[in-house]
Structure formats: C-alpha cells, structure tokens
C-alpha cells in the first residue's frame, strides 16, 4: 500500500506513547522527590545504526534492511526514555524524621524484600519495633550496614536531631549515621515504583561528609507544569496533523482511485 500511510501511523503511535510519559509526569506533580521522565524520538535509520548487528538480516547490511523496509526508514520511534534528576524545591514539614537531599547524585539506601534499592524520598517513620523505615515499611540502612548488619533503632520518645552529613543524634549524642549512596551514573538507574530505583553494584559507592542533608524538609517533584503543558499542546497538534495525512491517503486518494479510475460508464 502507500508507505506514507504507515509513516504517519508510526508517528501517531509514537506521539501516543509520548503522551503516556507526559501524563505520568503530570499525575505525579505532588509525589515527593519524583523525577520527570522525558523521551527522545529518533527515526529508524538512527536506531538501525545502533542495533544492526542484532538484526536477523543476511549480510547485516543497511541495503538489505532497506530492501525489506524500503520506506519505513524515517518512521519515528521512541529511541530513548531518560529521567531528569534535577532537584525539586524543598518544602518545610517540621517532622524530625523527614530528610531532604540537596545534591542530585546522592540517595538513601533501603532494603526491600526484592533486594537493596536507593531512593531520594526521605519521609521516614519508626515501625512498631522502633526501626527507621520508609512509609512503605522498607528498612532505611545505616552507613555501617555492610559491617554490622543492623538496622537503625530509636525509642519512640527520643528526640532525634540530624546534621548535614546524615549523622543522627539523640540528646546530643551520636546514635547512628544514614547510609548516603552516591550513584556514579544516574542514567543507569531504573525506576521501580514506590519512589525506588534499582541500581547495579558498580554504580554505587558510599559517601561520607556529603554536607547535603536537611532535616525537617521534604523534596517535592521537579516537574515544571509549563513544560508538560507545552508538550501536551505539541502532542495534540501533531496527532491532528498525522490524522489529516492518514485521511488524505485513505479517504481522498484511495477513494478517488477506486471510484474514478475504475468507474465503468454504462
């Protein structure tokens, strides 16, 4: 059929996928420490360059692929989805167990049933045994976790103060230190939900003296509604344009070809 039709369809599907990402960003405007996602839209020839060795095409040549997909060369696809780790604003909460991180590349380390994860959401609380946990119940790990294997423990009546390096004091005495994980390449993190990121061992190192922890503050999301709205406007207008292209192919050109060319006059 007409390949221009498929190009427009592919482009429209890409815009719908982009709309999914924008809607997720807007839905999370009030989520603590949420980092916005964005997409990079590339065309097929760019993606082919990166993956041509894996394609099951004889000789792995571009002309072989082009022969099969002659005009799909330029159909846009989402080639890369990335997370923007810019810092959001800090909101004062006056809760001594709320911590905010002031640097982009540091995280708290938590233990979940699925393994160790990192998070930037510092709204912690004490569980029924007095251990420091996140709001979902995952244990927040101390700086010496890999040596001692103990969790951070407080009595309910303790007044906890913290300094800028993540040291926790009870009545002026040092009780525990939060594990501050520095991620070397934030692009290698994957979002898992519940404010958690999955990381790989070589990407994480412990950081002492970070001087970037604020007690009593919560970090809000870094979503700028102006950018998301402009993205929504763009997506909607692009989908409208592609719809015009598609209907031109099908309703106008094809219908003319069928009706007028093959018209048999009695």
């Amino acid at each position: 059929m007409q390949n221009g039709f498929y190009s427009a369809t592919g482009a429209m599907v890409t815009q719908f996928n982009r709309l999914d990402v924008i809607s997720n960003n807007l839905a999370n405007i009030n989520t603590a420490a949420f980092k916005r996602d964005d997409v990079v839209i590339g065309d097929f020839s760019k993606i082919f360059q990166e993956t041509k060795d894996e394609l099951p095409i004889r000789n792995h040549t571009k002309s072989a692929a082009k022969y099969i997909n002659r005009y799909i060369d330029k159909v846009p696809q989402i080639s890369y989805e990335y997370t923007n780790f810019e810092k959001g604003a800090l909101k004062e909460s006056n809760n001594p167990l709320d911590f905010a991180l002031k640097r982009e590349d540091i995280f708290f380390l938590v233990e979940t049933p699925n393994g160790l994860r990192v998070t930037q959401n510092g709204s912690f609380s004490l569980n029924e045994d007095g251990e420091l946990v996140t709001k979902e119940g995952y244990f927040v790990l101390p700086a010496n976790f890999f040596e001692d294997r103990n969790y951070i423990n407080f009595a309910p009546e303790n007044e906890i103060t913290a300094d800028k390096d993540g040291n926790l004091y009870v009545d002026g005495e040092l009780d525990a230190t939060l594990f501050i994980a520095q991620i070397i390449d934030p692009r290698m993190l994957t979002k898992e939900g519940d404010h958690l990121y999955k990381f790989s061992e070589e990407n994480m190192q412990a950081l002492q003296n970070s001087n970037s922890i604020e007690q009593g503050f919560v970090e809000v999301s870094n979503i700028n509604p102006v950018s998301e709205m402009v993205g929504l406007i763009e997506t909607q207008r692009l989908v409208e344009m592609y719809q015009k292209v598609i209907s031109s192919h099908m309703d106008d050109l094809n219908s003319d070809a069928i009706n007028k060319l093959a018209n048999i006059r009695a």
Binding site: M229, V230, I233, R237, E240, M241, K244, S248
Partner: peptide, 16 residues
C-alpha cells in the same frame, strides 16, 4: 502567546 500559538496550529490543521 502559548494559547495563541495553539489556536494557530488548530487553524493549520483545519485547512484540510
């Protein structure tokens, strides 16, 4: 200015 650009894009799309 943004809403005006949006309306102009709408006009473009309504040409066809």
């Amino acid at each position: 200015a943004i809403t005006t650009s949006d309306e102009m894009l709408q006009t473009v799309n309504q040409l066809k």
